[in-house]
Design a protein around this nucleic acid. Structure first.
Lengths: 247, 247
DNA sequence: TGCTGACTGTTCAATATTGCACAAGGGCGA
DNA sequence: TCGCCCTTGTGCAATATTGAACAGTCAGCA
């Protein structure tokens, strides 16, 4: 497909960083994501990069839908608001991910708000061009597989919200985040991005005070740790074992 | 694409029934689903139909994954089990729907169990053949759109589980079910399929006793009704207005 | 036709969760 | 550097949810 040399070196750096940081994932999906990254980089290499400052929004719920975004560097969170104003954090995306792909659904407007958790560099791509590019590069089937994995993951999240208690859900959420965002650490997996208890609460579906108590408990049980740099260390095997034991 | 006369009359009847029963839906998605139905019927017209008796399983969690199923008639529910044995009902599928499509994800085994809520007739299609057929009929992009809608819907379910209380969730679930399964009724929308409170509880994420109380409340407020044939009548506008009022 | 098992409506005590409150602590910008 | 604001840890009373019980209904089946 595309030789490595074709891509701007800055991009390759971030992708290398991304690959190194992947702890555990469906290898087939990872392969597709890499192909997709290459394909999109080809498509957007002449496009202007978009710089988003920490805390700024990329789009908000209700806005008209037109584009898919590709993250060159930074972290983006997707948040949905209930009519009463309560927040639900759906996902955190990092360098090499795409988001906003639900514009492909043909639905009228964005349902969620995307905002930057740190300074972020994006490329934007109208969704028709996105699809054309995938089609040209023979990636439609790979993209279908990618979406199917997304649906399976969401199904699991739904089942967890319905069937298990909040301590268990917090544990599983931490494991997910570790696998998605974490880097290898001598102590297990390290998450450098700071995620507040409030944000965790809005992913797990409970209150901040409750998250605070559980995190404290996990820390006492030595399932997680806060490094001096304030990075969150998740001890994957221990935490997994603990969750199984209280199930 | 395919002229109407090509398809076996029995299938056309069920599809007509299906179309008549669609109360509200994304028209584009419906168009794609119809194209997909035609395409799959062509692919499976020589395949043996599979008869499933009420309450029997089509597949169970953990089984190896190979096929997509297409429903010719009947109703199928997808249920996920927690490690503690608690159930979560993910979806109910009816004539003209496909399910089991997560085998496209390439993941190892089924995550959920599919079982028949009434006697059901299915066609089975290995997932590679399914994809080949979609590709041949130029439906890959349509299928991507279909999956994107699914993801958007699941996102909404997740956000509801996280941000709103169980009465509200029950109301929204009833509306969803009505739109998916309901038929027009002078009183609004009629659901003929009997869904137990236990099943509703496992969709909404609460207990049976609670569902019972809320259903009673909805009935007293005249937002729903049970016909003499024991069909559930959902008064869409009234229920929607009520949910907005307690939000 | 009558039995039987599954479903519904309802109650209630035990338990879990929420939504405050307040006191530190730490990071970031002026 | 200082101060402010966001974040965290913790406690607690008010509230919501669970889970089990039990009686009454209903549908399907022998």
């Amino acid at each position: 497909m595309w030789a490595r040399g074709y891509l701007p070196i800055t991009i390759w750096e971030s992708l290398e960083g991304k690959r190194e940081s992947m702890i555990q994932c469906n290898p087939e999906t990872e392969r597709f994501k890499e192909q997709m990254r290459n394909s999109l980089q080809r498509e957007t290499q002449n496009a202007r990069a978009i710089n988003i400052a920490k805390h700024d929004n990329i789009y908000t719920a209700g806005q008209a839908v037109e584009s898919v975004y590709f993250i060159e560097s930074g972290k983006i969170k997707l948040v949905m608001l209930s009519s009463a104003g309560k927040e639900c954090m759906l996902a955190i995306h990092a360098a090499g991910d795409i988001f906003g792909e639900l514009c492909l659904s043909g639905l009228a407007g964005r349902r969620e708000t995307a905002s930057a958790m740190e300074d972020t560099v994006l490329k934007r791509l109208p969704c028709t061009r996105f699809l054309e590019r995938l089609a040209r590069d023979q990636l439609l089937e790979g993209f279908i597989k990618y979406l199917a994995v997304r649906i399976a993951d969401q199904q699991e999240v739904i089942a967890n919200l319905v069937t298990v208690d909040s301590e268990q859900r917090l544990g599983k959420t931490l494991l997910q985040l570790a696998r998605k965002l974490g880097k290898k650490d001598p102590r297990s997996i390290r998450i450098e991005l700071r995620i507040s208890h409030e944000e965790l609460a809005s992913m797990v579906g409970t209150t901040r005070s409750r998250i605070s108590v559980f995190m404290q408990r996990f820390r006492n049980l030595n399932l997680i740790e806060i490094s001096e740099e304030h990075h969150l260390i998740i001890k994957e095997t221990k935490l997994t074992a603990y969750l199984a034991s209280i199930a």
